[in-house]
Simulated assay, not measured.
Amino acid sequence: MACRGEHQQAIADIQGPQFWSQPWFATRFKLRYDEQFLYIAAYLEETAVWGNVSERNDVIFHDNDFEVFVDADGSTHNYKEFELNARNATWNLWLNRPYRDGGHENSSRVDPLHGFDMLSSGMRSAVFVPGHINDPGERLHYWTAEIALPLSQLALHSKAQVPPTPLTFWRINFSRVEWPVRLVTNSQTGKQHYEKEPGIREENWVWSAQYAVDMHRPEWWGYLQFRPRSELPSSSLDNRQPSEVAVPLDPEWSVRYVSFQFYYAQHAFHKATRSFTSHMEELLPFVTSREALGCMTVLDIHASTESFTARIASKYPDSNKDLQFIATIKDDGYIVVDKMSSTDMAATYE
């Protein structure tokens, strides 16, 4: 997705587009940016516009909500999360790493005095509801949100530059939590209100599928490319709409993908044996993507009972011979990708 203001419309169930249940309401959003903020406008189709949470930095996803996740440098660590409901109650937090890797929330919800909070850096939001919230008699069909997130806070404790370097990538995802509700009539007043259907879990709809009911898998988030108007590709100068101008693929994607297949295999091995391994042959039965094996070159592994670090190479997407991108990945999912020429690689690993 290029950060230039086109509508993004395709959302799917969090478990992927092949999952049996898919979104039944439309979601559209636009993005723009300047030197200070990432701006997001969202349209959320909805037939029951309701919200109970009203305190800032409370757990917003107990209501229907709209969520934004940003990993500025693609390391899967130190990413930020923003949630908002139809009452414009918001929650923003910083995750040092995913929960699966021992991560924890840093926010003013858990630490009112010293917790992370983008509000002091200019974060702001607004909601429009074409009627009264929590009133079934209104027969509403949508609500909208506008959000400004400070780039400096989104990039905090990462290697990303602010303002973003033109044409660089950040990782991003968007989510909707949708609770099934029913109409309940007060026997004394005759007034109706919305109530969650008891015993039924929420739906989770996302822009980039997670292939699990877990938004905290940053390796599966989508891509945001910062594209100033002066840097628009020539193809955008014809009669096509901005959304038809393709964002180029991240050349690091291949090595990132195979590195996380290695990460998943190591953790599956650890679950089975209570240890990580330095021997790739021991991991082979635990690699679920056979395709990844054909694209993966494991340069070295250092492992112990409780940790591992590995360096992994993958072939450059535009070349069948030259290994250029090298990923270093750790047991806690932290990943860094470096570029190395084939000549330097040969000299280093002979």
Rank of each mutant, 00 (worst) to 15 (best):
N85V: 11
N78L: 03
R56E: 15
E81I: 14
T76K: 02
T76A: 04
I60L: 01
D71T: 09
E81Q: 09
N57S: 13
F61G: 01
H77S: 09
D73V: 06
A86D: 09
H62W: 12
E83A: 12
K80D: 08
W91C: 14
F61C: 06
V68L: 07
D73Y: 03
E67C: 12
A89Y: 02
A86Y: 03
D58H: 14
D63E: 09
D65I: 10
D65N: 15
D71Q: 04
V68I: 15
I60V: 15
E83Q: 11
E81A: 11
L84R: 03
N88S: 10
G74P: 01
F66D: 05
F82Q: 08
N92I: 10
S75E: 03
N64K: 07
G74A: 07
A86N: 09
N64T: 13
N88R: 06
V59W: 07
N57P: 08
K80C: 10
A72L: 07
D63T: 10
N78H: 10
T90L: 04
F61V: 11
Y79W: 08
A72E: 02
F82S: 10
H77R: 07
W91Y: 14
E83Y: 03
N85H: 00
V70K: 00
E83G: 09
A86P: 04
D65G: 05
D58Y: 12
E83M: 11
G74T: 12
F66H: 09
D73K: 01
A89W: 03
N64Y: 00
F82V: 12
S54W: 05
W91N: 15
F69N: 01
N88A: 13
E81M: 06
A86H: 08
H77N: 10
H62I: 15
V70R: 01
A72D: 04
V59A: 11
E55S: 14
G74C: 02
A89T: 15
W91L: 13
A72V: 09
W91V: 13
N92H: 03
D73L: 01
R56S: 13
D58S: 15
T76G: 01
N85K: 06
D58L: 11
N85D: 09
N64H: 09
Y79E: 04
V70W: 00
D58A: 15
F66R: 02
F69Q: 03
K80F: 02
Y79S: 01
D71W: 00
F69A: 10
T76P: 00
N85R: 08
F82L: 06
R87A: 11
R56M: 12
